[in-house]
């Protein structure tokens, strides 16, 4: 834990974020499977649960790297090699780009938070080529990035920046319901994809909320 400070986050926060993500993904595993069952192939919850379980195992197996960026990179590589499907490369690239945006930084302030979220989102878009409104996880990440940027510019604390991002992500996820999917497996359904939440957008909201909760636990 960062002693008495709420203005910056450290490696401990990254580790806590990943652990909290694993916990919530495991808890919501069946819910995410059911969402994917409706417009996909019923594996999203299983895939993320397998991936984050592998990340936690990596964190538990001996010492993890020292910097936030290095831990994010370890998580990225682990997700990439254990999730599979569309979500594996997308979340993997997201965390990898986030790691790169941090470089050797040890202390993460509001601007770094906004920056790492932006880098993550850009990674997802670079990989998946989805645009806003395509009914993908981008529809959670883009509002999250925008809210985080606005909050950081307005001088919010790291916790506030993260909270803004998570709230926007969840709202974005909820807003995928009426959309017709134009990317990913749900796009095969055409108009039948409308009326369902996008599983990846929902899991993105959960993971960003995990970042908030991890930061809260650090205070």
């Amino acid at each position: 834990m960062v002693e008495g400070s709420t203005s910056t986050l450290t490696t401990d926060w990254v580790v806590a974020w990943l652990r909290e993500s694993a916990r919530v993904v495991s808890e919501q595993r069946q819910y995410l499977i059911d969402l994917d069952r409706a417009i996909g192939d019923a594996d999203h919850g299983e895939n993320l649960d397998r991936g984050f379980t592998a990340v936690v195992k990596k964190l538990d197996d001996g010492d993890h790297p020292a910097t936030p960026g290095a831990v994010l990179k370890l998580a990225a590589m682990t997700l990439m090699s254990s999730v599979g499907g569309a979500a594996g490369p997308l979340y993997g690239t997201a965390l990898l780009r986030a790691a790169t945006s941090l470089g050797d930084t040890e202390l993460i302030g509001p601007n770094e938070v906004a920056g790492l979220l932006t880098a993550a989102r850009d990674g997802i878009v670079a990989r998946g080529k989805a645009e806003s409104g395509d009914k993908t996880m981008v529809d959670a990440w883009t509002p999250a990035v925008e809210a985080a940027g606005t909050a950081a510019m307005a001088g919010a604390s790291v916790a506030e920046v993260l909270a803004a991002a998570a709230n926007a992500a969840n709202a974005g996820a909820a807003a995928t319901e009426p959309l017709i999917a134009r990317k990913g497996r749900a796009s095969y359904l055409g108009e039948r994809s409308a009326g369902h939440l996008d599983p990846g957008a929902v899991s993105s909201g959960l993971i960003l909320q995990a970042a908030v909760d991890a930061a809260g636990a650090q205070e």
């Binding site: 594996d43 299983e46 895939n47 397998r50 990439m80 999730v83 599979g84 499907g85 569309a86």
Partner: peptide
């Protein structure tokens, strides 16, 4: 995995 593409 079942119905899930393999990893790199």
């Amino acid at each position: 995995a079942m119905f899930t593409s393999p990893t790199p």
